[in-house]
Structures are given as structure tokens and as C-alpha cells.
Computed example of a mutant assay.
Amino acid sequence: MLEQGLIRDFIGGAWRDLPFAPFHPGVTRHILYGEPEGAAAALLRYEAGARVPRHEHTGFEHILVLDGAQCDENGHYPAGTFAINAPGTVHQVWSDEGCVALLIWERPVRILI
């Protein structure tokens, strides 16, 4: 399915066949590409009720919710929502019902706890 940086039928759900690994309690991820301190892209899969700790964005982050819905202090974002978090944005992310989101970021976040 992944051939030289290409995933066919990604929006149609081909991401479901990718391997996910533990990230935070109740959240798994599949890294598409990236550097530890630089630009990267990943799929995050939240179980119902899962959260990612409060964090600050140190660079731009683009999010496309592919399935379910994601939430933060500013709202509820169902499948099909595209969001941009600018550098300096601070929030906590969760999913009441579970979700999968594509994240593409310029620089990693800083966990604030």
C-alpha cells in the first residue's frame, strides 16, 4: 500500500491498514515521515475518551480529521474538518467518541503538563 511515499485511496480509508504503535494512553500513531526535532507527519488514532496532554505548538501544525471527532478547548471537530494550529497555540486534545486524524507539523510540540 505504501509505495515510495504514496498511499492510494488515503481519504477512502486505506490508512486503516497501516500499523499503529503506542503514543499516549489510549492514543496510537503511525509516523508517515519525520525528524525528531523537525517537520513530520503522522496519523493519530484516539480511543473513545483518550486525551493528549496540554501542549504548545512550536511551529505550524495542520490537522485533517479523517474519522470520528476530535475536540479541544475551542470546539468539536468532526471528520472532514481541517484545522491549523499556529506557533504559540496552546491546548489539550481529546476525543469523546474516538477518532483518527492526519497531523503534519513544522516542529514538534512542547508538552506543558
Rank of each mutant, 00 (worst) to 15 (best):
V109R: 08
I63T: 13
D72F: 00
P78S: 01
R107F: 01
P22S: 07
G98V: 05
H76L: 01
V109A: 10
P78E: 00
L103F: 14
I111K: 09
V52Y: 02
Q70R: 00
A40R: 12
A86G: 03
G49P: 09
L64I: 09
R45P: 06
E3R: 15
A41R: 09
G88A: 07
Q70I: 02
V100M: 01
S95D: 02
E47N: 05
E106T: 06
N74Q: 15
G59T: 08
E47Y: 02
I104R: 09
D9I: 08
G26E: 04
E73H: 11
G13D: 02
E61K: 03
L18A: 08
A83N: 11
A48C: 02
D96Q: 07
E3T: 13
R16I: 07
L44Y: 13
L64A: 10
G26N: 02
L112Q: 04
A40D: 08
V93G: 05
I104P: 03
P22M: 04
M1F: 12
L64K: 06
N85H: 13
E56I: 05
D17V: 07
L102M: 10
G98E: 08
H62Q: 13
G68N: 07
R107S: 07
E61G: 04
T81D: 03
L2C: 05
A41C: 11
D9G: 08
G38Y: 07
G34W: 06
C71Q: 14
R8N: 12
E97Y: 00
P19A: 14
N74P: 01
H91Q: 12
D9R: 15
I111L: 14
I84D: 02
R107W: 00
G80A: 00
P22N: 05
C99H: 04
